[in-house]
Design a protein around this nucleic acid. Structure first.
Length: 124
RNA sequence: GAAGUCGGCCAGGCAAUCGCUGGGGGUGCAAACCCCUGGAGGAAAGUCCGGACUCCUGAGGGCGGGAUGCCAGGUAACGCCUGGGCGAUGUGAAUCGACGGAAAGUGCCACAGAAAAUAUACCGCCGAUGGCCGCAAGGCACAGGUAAGGGUGAAAUGGUGCGGUAAGAGCGCACCGCGUCGCUGGCAACAGUGGACGGCAGGGAAAACCCCAUCCGGAGCAAGGCCAAAUAGGGAAGCAACGGUGCGGCCCGCACCGCUUCCGGGUAGGCUGCUUGAGCCAGUGAGUGAUUACUGGCCCAGAGGAAUGGUUGCCCACGACAGAAUCCGGCUUAUCGGCUGACUUCCACU
RNA sequence: GCUCCCAUCGUCUAGUGGCCUAGGACACUGGCCUCUCACGCCGGGAACAGGGGUUCGAAACCCCUUGGGAGCG
């Protein structure tokens, strides 16, 4: 099938965590990674594709514009790296105020996060 | 040309490429995929007002409570807007104003001061009249008169002048101010007044209670409706009757409960409500204007842990505040700038 | 999203327009006491979230803004 090549860079609704119980399982069992500002929780989901969930509270980013920008950057970065993260549910939790960072800085930070996930979850 | 006032509009653009999503179409049993097309704002914000919509009973009566507050108009409605009046600021264009009532009543006004609202008299002024002394001018003390001056305070019962007087005082008069009535203009607020009357009818504060006029039932899309795992807490009919609970603060009013019999309901979750609307654009008519009538055209986000984005290149004025969540009308607050119209003042030239 | 509430020294609070130049407790700090610390005693610093308005006068009354908190599935 020719369209499968484009699947690499897609990010559909099936690749999102939408249900509350899906979030709680990742929170309860997931492997906690990431740095002080962005926490990454990973858990195997017994699926082919990787799935992403976001927890971006108002506590650290007060303005909706900043929250939207961060979420878009996370999704875009996830979209580029999802082939390396197959079979994992990942929840990204905001822990610090990142409004001052540029998009390029955020992408770099997220890239480090994904590398960490790939290394630690390669065995499990 | 410079300085300024008010109003309207815009909110980086173009291209390439990789994505997300609503609608329409196509292929396919389906899952999916492809094509076309749409995809944040002037404030989307604060939730400060007003509505629509939904449920509570179809929202009813009274009390209480709340809101508004110069006049007229506009509107579905408003605390909004327009026009006008009055006051304040500015040379001016203009801007700003919680702008009803204190002789309906109650309460408050610290300190100071005689007195803070029925007025009153600390220092003063006078002591004409009455008393005493003196021939007299005059002097003495008291009764008393007075509110001009001083002093206090945020605030002290019109102002100036003349007359008047023992000293004074709207006590009298003139002018100014004020009030009531009349007249004129105006729908009205209000304005004017060579008119008449009143000596002034009496401080502030109603963002103290309050009075007057007008308006308001309560909750909110997490409203509400439908389908429905796990689990038992539910529903309908009949009977009895007191208290309790609920609707929004209370009363009236209305609804529900306890027992018996019968049988089906509902949380997680999903679907819906969900975007065609007091809509937008253009023209013509009415109106000073807000606005409105008619005609023609257009469809302009609808997500759901939540789309509207990423990267690159070029251009320029080098990009502010900021992200829809049921929907509209306003207000308020934040905001780099750009374009444009009307008007004002000053300078120069013709 | 909707509906509400609150804001006073570092912390917890009192304060019903004038007695407020804002009181108290704990904490902080200086001195005395003690061989030293603690306790105790005497003193000191320290606040009305911000901006406007009403008023002679505002922490209080009114409006706007900012910040914090609660409830509703």
């Amino acid at each position: 099938m020719t369209p499968t090549t484009s699947d690499v860079s897609r990010f559909t609704r099936q690749q999102r965590l939408t249900q509350a119980n899906e979030f709680t399982t990742v929170f309860n069992h997931g492997l906690r990674l990431g740095d002080r500002q962005l926490q990454l929780l990973c858990w195997s989901n017994n699926r082919v594709e990787a799935r992403l969930g976001l927890v971006i509270g108002k506590k650290y980013l007060r303005r909706a514009v900043d929250r939207n920008r961060l979420k878009r950057q996370i999704r875009e970065s996830f979209r580029g790296q999802q082939t390396r993260l197959k079979g994992l549910d990942i929840v990204v939790v905001l822990r610090a105020d990142l409004a001052a960072k540029t998009n390029a800085q955020l992408r770099q930070q997220l890239q480090q996060g994904w590398e960490q996930v790939v290394q630690r979850c390669a065995t499990c």
